[in-house]
Design a protein around this nucleic acid. Structure first.
Lengths: 262, 262
DNA sequence: CGAGAGGTTGATCAGACTCAATTGCAGTGG
DNA sequence: CCACTGCAATTGAGTCTGATCAACCTCTCG
């Protein structure tokens, strides 16, 4: 019936894993000029669906921004949860680090996406959030957000939707990890990235991977070698053009064909 | 770095997959006697954390119960989402069925657990919810629940927590599917089940699997043969005793040792 | 220009899948 | 009551995908 299968579950030495620098946090900066009301990510981010009249209230909440340098952590597993973070620019990965030091990437986050939703229940972050490139986020204090959500029904609903969407997204990845071959996983990954860039208004067929082959492999449950081989093959077969992290999708149909009917 | 790996991603013929009967729905029945206020699952279900004073309001919302026969669907993928379901008795699986007819189980749900949270964002169910045994659920109309959550801050918070917990749970499964060997997956599965039964007040070391080997394998991204072989081996090695679906965990430490340090 | 990280490619190996046969159990009908 | 049917589970033999190990290439940046 099923196939998803794992091999040899030892990990390569943790030594190789890039150490996650704890940033001497460049603490939050208030940018009064930059608010939800005039943010170009309005339509895809937290305020999506809110009546214009209520945007002002959200502005007050999200005035604090924070910059995170490439490789630095926005927050770390174990940190107390007290705010959500909306990515303004840049990109993040969330990483689970086991006691043994092995890392597992549980998600990538692009602009307009909200980090930290999984920590609400336990009030502690379960994972590190590490910037893939120099990035900036809006800090959204959760207690105040909750209060606001009691007063603005559309905001409450939007929060439910965001949380629910995260569940759906994770379940998609579960299907991928549980059922698909390496080939299918990578094709699905590229198509999903394409969709997300398109949603942000970028080209759907030509984009820059923000992550290394190793990070892709880690996320997809594959080794970096397998990712590299597959990218080479996809290119040989004319499905994509790839040089370094620059990817062009040249044959969407073929890629979707590979993923199959999930 | 990583290992999770899939094989041969063809599926066994869909013919073998047990057809999901669309139940001639035994429509909702009102049981005025059975309400959250006097339900023994109070502490682990939706009302958890609510001030006693507010329980009455929830009672009104959850008066409608629904029975679902073993093998029948509580809801089906594509159905409009308009209610959450709290499992009162019995057990469910959620199943994603691809166009090709292959099934993938995305979760199991025991009493006190809430079904349907993933459908909030799209307003349609993405999966079938199928009863593993004759079961009963509380029907919780979502629109009314949302309204109530605006008036009862603790309820809003509890909903956020429930949604957030589902995200955490799924990410746990992602780790499992992406990184663990067959052996680790099964050990983790048994330990997780044990924890859930314990939470419900049942014995932690002796329980009845509600699902077949095939369903376990499907869920874990393994074949039923692998599950069977591993159960036999765990038994040979004295870690468990198993006959049919009756499982006794005899060596928790060894099982945890197998799972390792995730 | 050299060092090191990131990426590519090849050879070999092994864990889990596939296919197939067998056993056990539950429900059905004669 | 027992043979018959069918599903669930067990077990064995052979195969294959992707991991592992290892060498080499190629950028980038100090």
């Amino acid at each position: 019936m099923l196939n998803g299968t794992t091999h040899h579950s030892t990990f390569r030495p943790a030594v190789q894993a890039p150490a996650i620098r704890t940033s001497a946090r460049p603490m939050g900066v208030v940018h009064p000029g930059l608010s939800c009301s005039n943010c170009c990510l309005q339509g895809v981010c937290l305020p999506c669906g809110l009546p214009a009249a209520d945007l002002g209230e959200l502005d007050e909440l999200t005035m604090v921004k924070r910059r995170t340098a490439r490789g630095a952590a926005l927050y770390r597993g174990g940190d107390r949860f007290d705010a959500l973070y909306a990515v303004r620019s840049g990109a993040f990965k969330t990483v689970c680090v086991s006691r043994g030091g092995e890392e597992k990437i549980t998600g990538f986050y692009l602009s307009g996406e909200v980090l930290g939703l999984d920590a609400i229940s336990s009030e502690r972050h379960g994972y590190h959030a590490v910037a893939l490139e120099d990035s900036e986020v809006c800090v959204i204090p959760f207690t105040r957000l909750q209060e606001l959500a009691l007063r603005i029904p559309e905001l409450q609903q939007q929060l439910f939707r965001l949380l629910s969407r995260d569940i759906t997204r994770d379940q998609g990845l579960m299907l991928l990890l549980g059922n698909m071959t390496a080939e299918q996983r990578l094709a699905a990954f590229l198509l999903a990235l394409s969709r997300r860039y398109k949603r942000l208004g970028y080209a759907a067929d030509c984009f820059n991977l923000r992550m290394t082959r190793e990070e892709i492999g880690n996320y997809l449950g594959l080794t970096l070698e397998t990712v590299s081989r597959l990218l080479s093959r996809f290119q040989r077969e004319g499905l994509i053009a790839a040089q370094q992290r620059e990817i062009e999708l040249k044959d969407f149909d073929a890629l979707m064909e590979i993923v199959g009917h999930w």
